[in-house]
Amino acid sequence: MKRKRFLSFMLTAGLTLPVTVSLGKTVETLDDLPIKQPPYLKAGDTIGITSPAGFITMPEILPAIAMMESWGFKVKIGKTIDQRDFTMGGTDQERAADLQQMLDDPEIKAIMCARGGYGLVRIIDLLNFDRFVKTPKWIIGFSDVTVLHCHLNRQFGIASIHSKMCNSFPTDPAVADAMQLATIMSIKKLLKGENMQYQGPIVGINKPGRASGILVGGNLSIIESMAGTKSDLITDGKILFVEDTGEYLYNLDRMFWNLKRTGKLDRLAGLIIGGFKVKPDDPGEEFGKTIYDIVQEKVSHYGYPVAYDFPIGHQKNNFALKCGVKHSLEVGANGSRLSALG
């Protein structure tokens, strides 16, 4: 049946058109949701700490508690701290219940995930976000927490914070490495609503240009694993950032092919390549390409700016970013610059 006749038939018959039918392009209604930013924190507000992925002990999070209290915040400890179910911070049911309690608790204004690891994908569909959507709060973390960042962006259009977690806070801030301290303080600045701007290094293969768009992204392997699910990112018109650790080069190549073949690279506003800690090739199994080669092969024919070696990822210089918020990206002779516009 021809398209005009089909549309006429649907309307005449009183049938509802599917949301994906439009004149010439697919309509993704979830991506049209207005972006919501949770309220910024003020002195006396409470931050909850939970472990929805890997396990962690109370002594390991004490430095984070002390520093956040020094910022003027109260801290509420979840039941998953000191819990352990093999590699995870309690059973799926325990981790889901702890995170759910914090999502629903009106006293908690931000939730910091204690560490990454693995486990969020096992509980994401057990969570109820009804109360959270009405009164959103900042979700903080990276690595496996990318599951939450993707889900919040795709399903609800709610901003979140991609940053270090409790296991990265310095034991003694007075003698901490300057970069470690700067990245931790970037979390405080975001939570308090300060304007954020970050500089990336001069890299010979940076692709110059300017762009603006909603910032989305996180851990590359997690983003790939979300493909085809209701947490899958829509990247059209957005600035995408990616990072990863402990992966073979051939596997990173496969992940970037996934981004390309699923269309996630086609209509970006800009691309940011963060830190990639590569697992050495096995002897005799050398892949023969660097991470730069891998990315350039997939994006060289696109016109948008690309910034390499940006200070995000599983590394010391991992600064806090606001996912789901409009940013500007400038890439030029002096390196790259990312600025939050909201």
Rank of each mutant, 00 (worst) to 15 (best):
S160P: 13
S160H: 12
H162L: 13
N167T: 14
N167P: 03
S168A: 14
F169A: 01
F169C: 07
P170R: 08
P170A: 06
T171V: 13
D172V: 11
P173R: 11
P173W: 03
A176E: 11
D177G: 10
A178Y: 04
M179V: 14
L181N: 09
L181P: 05
I184L: 01
I187E: 08
K189A: 15
L190N: 10
L190E: 10
L191N: 05
E194A: 11
Q197P: 05
P201E: 06
V203S: 13
I205L: 04
I205D: 06
P208D: 09
G209M: 08
S212K: 14
I214S: 03
G217V: 10
G218D: 01
N219D: 14
L220F: 04
I222V: 15
I223K: 01
I223P: 00
S225H: 05
D232C: 15
D236F: 04
G237L: 14
G237N: 06
I239D: 08
L240D: 06
F241C: 03
V242Q: 04
E243S: 13
T245H: 01
T245E: 09
T245M: 03
G246L: 04
L249R: 01
Y250V: 08
L252W: 01
D253F: 05
R254K: 14
R254Y: 13
W257D: 12
N258K: 07
L259R: 00
